[in-house]
Computed example of a mutant assay.
Amino acid sequence: MAERPMETTVRTALWQQFGAAIDMLENALVACPDTLWQEHLWIDSEGSDYGTFGDIIYHTLYWLDLYLTGRPEEEFTPPAPFNRKSDDVIPKQPYTRDELHTYLKYLRKKCQSTITSLSDEKVHQPFYFPWDSKNPIGYFELQLYTMRHVQEHAAQLSLFLGQHAIPDEALDWVERAKDEVGL
């Protein structure tokens, strides 16, 4: 068996785990009944409009999209209908499950192609969080950070659904991305 270059191995592993985190978020989105879509997981200090199931899905997708670009938030515009400048602004009408599911599928493909095309230059590109403009992290670390963020919210949403008697099978652990990408 021929050895694969390390960068291919790293990209493949990164995609398989990142894709699995996105797949677990998708499982929660699909498993959520309409009766729980606007229920609060918590009351956020920003206000009672935050912290609903649908809002947490949107928040997770917004930051996934932003961090995949590796650009500052002020240079980022997500696709319509999500194209407001910050997820700090609550829409007058909450996003629908279908809108967010479409966005998730789009971002899954974007994540897969982003990881597939990672270059040495991109991996080392610095990224500055708005709250810490003096200590950049590299783009590769940003993607690990983002994967953890997706998984954190997927776990919170899954726990919430489990507490509301949604069957475990709908929320099963995803070992690797549902499909492999040819890296």
Rank of each mutant, 00 (worst) to 15 (best):
L41P: 12
L144H: 00
H40Q: 14
P91S: 13
R11Q: 06
F127N: 07
L161V: 12
H153P: 05
H124I: 12
V89S: 14
D55H: 06
A170K: 10
W131C: 02
H101K: 07
R97L: 07
E75C: 04
P79L: 03
K92W: 04
L41F: 13
L64Y: 01
G19K: 09
Q112M: 10
I56N: 08
Y58H: 07
Q151A: 15
I56V: 12
L64E: 04
L144R: 00
E99T: 04
Y106V: 06
K105M: 06
H40G: 07
E26F: 02
E75N: 05
L104F: 04
I115R: 02
G54T: 08
Q143E: 02
R148Y: 11
F53I: 03
P136R: 04
H40N: 13
K134E: 13
D65E: 13
Y62C: 08
F160A: 08
Q125C: 04
E99V: 03
G138T: 14
E26I: 03
R176M: 10
W173M: 03
A155R: 15
T9F: 04
R84C: 05
T69L: 10
P126Y: 09
I166R: 02
D65L: 01
L66S: 02
L171Y: 00
P72Q: 12
E39Y: 07
P91E: 15
L25D: 05
D120N: 09
L61T: 11
N83D: 13
P94W: 12
Y128P: 01
V181M: 09
R11H: 05
M24D: 08
E73D: 00
L144T: 00
D34G: 14
E73F: 00
L144S: 01
V181R: 07
P78T: 10
Q112C: 06
Q112W: 07
